[in-house]
Simulated scan of single mutants.
Amino acid sequence: MRGIEASRQVIDLVYGHEGRTHHGGGCSSATIDRAERELELTFPPSYRLLIKEFGTWDVPPTEFLGIYQTEAAGDVLLGSVSETLDARVSVDMPSELMVILLDDVWFFAVLDTSQPDQDGEYPVFAWNPGVLDGGLLEKIADSFGEFALKECRQKLN
C-alpha cells in the first residue's frame, strides 16, 4: 500500500525533526469514528493512520488539518471535520469531498471520496469554488499519504 507506507514515512519525518515540526497527541478510534459519522464519509487508511498518530500536525508553513479539539471549542471536532462542514455550507463544496489542507494557491486540498482505489485510498485534488464544473483543478496525489510525504519532504529540505 503506497499510501500507508508514505504515511509511515511522514510519521518518521515528523518525529525525526522535532523542533521544526509540531504535532498533537493523536486521536482515539472513537473520535475518528465520530468524525466519519459527522462527515458521512470514510477516511482512507493513510489519513486514518496519521490522524491516529498525531491528531493534527504541521511542518511549517504547511498545517495539516487532521482532527483535534480545544477547550474553547468544547465538543466540536476541529480541523478536517469543521473545515469540510463549513465549506459545504459557505462555498457549496460537494459532499464527496473532504478538506485536508487550506492553501493560498489552491484554496483547498481535498480528498475525493467518490474515487476509491483498491486499497481504499482517495486521490487528492486542488479544489476552488470559483472554478466551473465542480471546482476540481488538478490531481495532486494518488493518496493522502503520498501527498503528505511530498509536502513534508519539501518543507524539511
Rank of each mutant, 00 (worst) to 15 (best):
M1F: 12
M1S: 12
R2G: 11
G3D: 07
E5M: 11
A6G: 08
A6M: 05
S7C: 07
R8I: 12
R8L: 14
V10A: 02
D12A: 14
L13C: 03
V14Y: 03
Y15L: 15
Y15E: 14
G16P: 07
E18M: 13
T21F: 00
H22W: 15
G24A: 05
G25Y: 10
G26I: 09
C27Y: 02
C27P: 03
A30F: 00
A30K: 07
D33P: 01
D33W: 00
E38S: 10
L39Q: 09
T42A: 15
T42W: 06
F43G: 05
P45D: 08
P45E: 07
Y47W: 10
R48K: 15
L49E: 02
K52Y: 06
E53G: 07
T56H: 10
D58N: 15
P60Q: 10
P60F: 02
P60C: 05
P61F: 00
P61N: 05
L65P: 01
I67K: 06
I67Q: 03
Q69W: 06
T70S: 13
A72M: 11
A73T: 12
D75C: 09
V76Q: 13
L77Q: 05
S80K: 02
V81G: 06
V81L: 10
V81W: 03
S82C: 09
S82R: 11
S82D: 13
T84I: 03
L85T: 09
L85Q: 12
V89H: 13
S90M: 14
M93F: 01
M93Q: 02
P94W: 00
E96L: 11
M98K: 05
M98V: 08
V99M: 01
I100A: 10
L101P: 00
D103I: 08
D104Y: 11
V105K: 04
F108V: 02
T113A: 10
T113S: 13
P116S: 05
D117P: 08
G120Y: 03
E121N: 07
F125V: 04
F125P: 02
W127Y: 12
W127G: 00
N128C: 04
N128D: 14
N128P: 04
G130K: 15
L132R: 15
D133V: 10
L136Y: 07
L137H: 11
I140H: 10
A141G: 09
A141V: 01
E151N: 11
R153N: 10
Q154A: 14
Q154I: 11
Q154D: 15
N157R: 14
